Simulated scan of single mutants.
Amino acid sequence: MFDDLSTAALRVAVTGLSARQNAIANNIANVETPGFRARKVKFEEALQGAVARGQSPLGIAPSTSESLEPTRLNGNNVNLDEETLSHIDTTMRYQLTLRAIDSKYGLLRDAIKGA
């Protein structure tokens, strides 16, 4: 019950979105650090592929890479506007995923109570 495909996918999504939030926070914190290269987190394609094949996505881990955006004169390539939008998008996705998990366990709670 707790390791079905949808629950596993939601768990991987929460992990990936959390990793992305951490990377975004680190990027924003270093917006003025000379030579700092922004980091990007990806996991959606691997998660979508596993779910489409009907495979458990539990082995999927978020991958982190350096942004290929051009750098400023100080060697930093953090784009504050892009990071802010990414933060908002990721926060909304995270909240939606948590709601889906809550709903799934709410149904289980109701079934156990016999409601």
Rank of each mutant, 00 (worst) to 15 (best):
I88A: 12
E66D: 10
R99S: 13
E32F: 05
S86Q: 15
R99H: 11
N76M: 01
F43H: 00
R72A: 12
S86C: 06
A115W: 08
N26R: 12
A111L: 15
P34A: 04
F36S: 05
T97V: 14
S6P: 00
V78S: 01
E66C: 05
G114Q: 03
Y94S: 06
V41I: 10
G106E: 14
R39C: 01
T7R: 08
A8K: 05
A29Q: 10
G35P: 08
D110F: 09
G35N: 10
A61D: 13
A100L: 15
A29S: 15
E69G: 05
K113M: 12
I88R: 07
S86P: 00
L108P: 01
E82D: 12
I28G: 01
L10I: 04
A61I: 09
S63W: 07
G16N: 03
V41T: 02
F43S: 00
A100G: 07
K104Y: 13
S86A: 13
N30W: 02
R39V: 02
N77M: 04
E69L: 12
N30P: 06
S67H: 04
A50D: 03
R72I: 00
T33E: 06
N79K: 10
S86H: 11
N74Y: 05
T33V: 02
Q55E: 15
L85N: 11
V78A: 01
D102V: 06
L80N: 09
A23N: 04
V12N: 01
L96D: 09
D81Q: 14
N77S: 07
R72Y: 05
L98M: 15
M92E: 10
E45F: 13
R11T: 13
S63L: 13
D81A: 14
V41H: 02
A38P: 03
A111M: 12
F2I: 15
Q95T: 06
L58N: 11
N30C: 02
R53T: 05
T90W: 07
E66P: 03
L108G: 03
R37W: 04
P57N: 05
